[in-house]
Amino acid sequence: MSPTPYLVLATLLFTIGGAGVLLRRNALVAFMSVELMLNAANLAFVTFARMHGNLDGQIMAFFVMVIAAAEVVVGLAIIVMIFRTRRSASVDDASLLKL
């Protein structure tokens, strides 16, 4: 099967994830959208691995997953901290660096 449908699917998922980041104020949803974008990228990796007939793409996808796990741990900790101090999980409320 041609890789093109997989890549189009990856593109769609990626942009939908991007839209989630842009549109949702809830930090958790935005964060999940980021995970969706990572998954879309992984799909592209795996597709290309198969297309080229080697496993490097799969390895890369594997590392992306591990890094995503680490990122989620730290990111969720940060969200919990922000929620504790500001009583809000909205990313718009965390705009203190602006005057």
Binding site: M1, S2, P3, T4, L7, V8, T11, L12, F14, T15, I16, G18, A19, L22, L23, A49, R50, M51, H52, G53, N54, L55
Partner: peptide
């Protein structure tokens, strides 16, 4: 955001759709 997302979708889909990709070799 809608404009940007739409633009990116059009761009990426056009690119991937137009690309002449070979059939997968398989692993």
């Amino acid at each position: 955001a809608a404009l940007a997302v739409f633009g990116v979708i059009v761009l990426l889909v056009a690119v991937t759709g137009r690309a002449a990709l070979p059939d997968p070799v398989g692993t």
